[in-house]
């Protein structure tokens, strides 16, 4: 009977969903690395590096983004025991054994690493080794510590930012991601993004070596986006909303999200941002602090208001002071007469 088939198919569907949901997470420590690496005293002492701990705090690891990735997926050249003394640093663009949800291809961060390589943050052959070293690599922004500080509340609020990292994947991609990775602590709260970017960009001493605007962070903080975000309005744009997550390019670059040709689209990139903006609107989205050079009109408007306010209040204060003085003086005179 059709009704029975219908009922059965629902049951089957339910079973499939339940099985999928209850499937055990991939055993991250399948190779039992923590047998040794959970020991607090595990480490070496070398004359050059001093004490170096090899302890992996189990709790910190279990709550990190990479909790389902087995150790050797990233630490690729550890193949023998005892391990070699010199091992290569972890490279984020290497493929690991995690598969993309509902796909059989190996997962890697190559796409992100490629974007980063050609971005303003990537390696620049004209720069000295020291100057290149001063730029953020994958691990600077994506340290597990940074991920771990995100509490569940912030995660929920920032879930609207999913599309930021999954640009071009469309709604289906987002749903697949959310359904398979729900609970992963991968989305940062906007305020953390601003804090992360500010850790370099607000440091004038650090940024002076690069040819960038030193007032960007201050300009953002005095703009509505920066102020409202501090007050907890998470829908406002943070740094990455306009400057992208990996392909951060200077405004002069035609591929940049903030190039005059693209900025209009950037303002309306997310559905919760400004829809249907004009080129004039996009041209107003500057967040540097106005000076006589970069924005003379705004500079003088601002000073005009400061002078108007100070001048008006000075006159009003003087009037109050004189008025009150006469009142006090009258009392004093009357007492003297008595």
């Amino acid at each position: 009977m059709p009704a029975t088939i219908y009922r059965h198919s629902i049951l089957v569907l339910l079973l499939v969903v339940l099985t999928a949901l209850s499937a055990p997470a991939q055993q991250a420590d399948a190779e039992n690395c923590n047998l040794c690496h959970s020991l607090a005293l595990l480490g070496i002492a070398t004359p050059s590096e001093g004490l170096r701990s090899f302890e992996v705090t189990a709790n910190a690891y279990r709550h990190s983004t990479h909790r389902n990735v087995i150790c050797r997926d990233c630490h690729t050249d550890i193949n023998v025991f005892p391990h070699p003394q010199e091992v290569a640093k972890v490279e984020c663009y290497k493929a690991c054994h995690i598969t993309k949800p509902f796909a059989l291809t190996g997962y890697s961060h190559a796409e992100q690493a490629d974007a980063h390589a050609i971005s303003a943050h990537g390696f620049n052959s004209e720069y000295s080794a020291e100057k290149n070293e001063a730029k953020p690599d994958c691990k600077y922004c994506h340290s597990n510590t940074f991920r771990n500080v995100v509490n569940d509340e912030a995660l929920q609020e920032s879930s609207q930012h999913c599309v930021r990292c999954h640009e071009g994947e469309g709604l289906a991609g987002v749903i697949l991601h959310v359904s398979s990775h729900s609970g992963h602590r991968t989305a940062e709260a906007s305020i953390d993004v601003v804090e992360l970017c500010s850790s370099c960009h607000a440091d004038q001493g650090h940024m002076k070596q690069f040819d960038v605007n030193l007032t960007q962070v201050g300009g953002y903080e005095r703009h509505f986006h920066g102020k409202a975000l501090k007050r907890g309005l998470n829908e406002v744009a943070n740094c990455m909303d306009c400057h992208r997550n990996h392909l951060n390019l200077p405004a002069e670059d035609p591929n940049s999200s903030i190039h005059p040709n693209n900025i209009q689209q950037t303002c309306s990139a997310n559905t919760y941002c400004h829809s249907d903006v004009s080129s004039k609107f996009a041209a107003s989205a500057i967040h540097s602090e106005p000076t006589t050079q970069n924005n003379p009109i705004l500079f003088y408007v601002e000073w005009g208001f400061i002078i108007l306010t100070a001048g008006t209040m000075a006159l009003l204060f003087a009037h109050i002071f004189l008025d009150f003085g006469r009142w006090v003086g009258d009392i004093w005179l009357r007492r003297k007469e008595k």
């Binding site: 903006v277 004039k280 107003s284 208001f305």
Partner: peptide, 17 residues
Amino acid sequence: VLFSKFLPGIVIQIAYI
């Protein structure tokens, strides 16, 4: 967004200040 359709972008910045 509406006002910047017919007013220059700097007007929004001036309005903010």
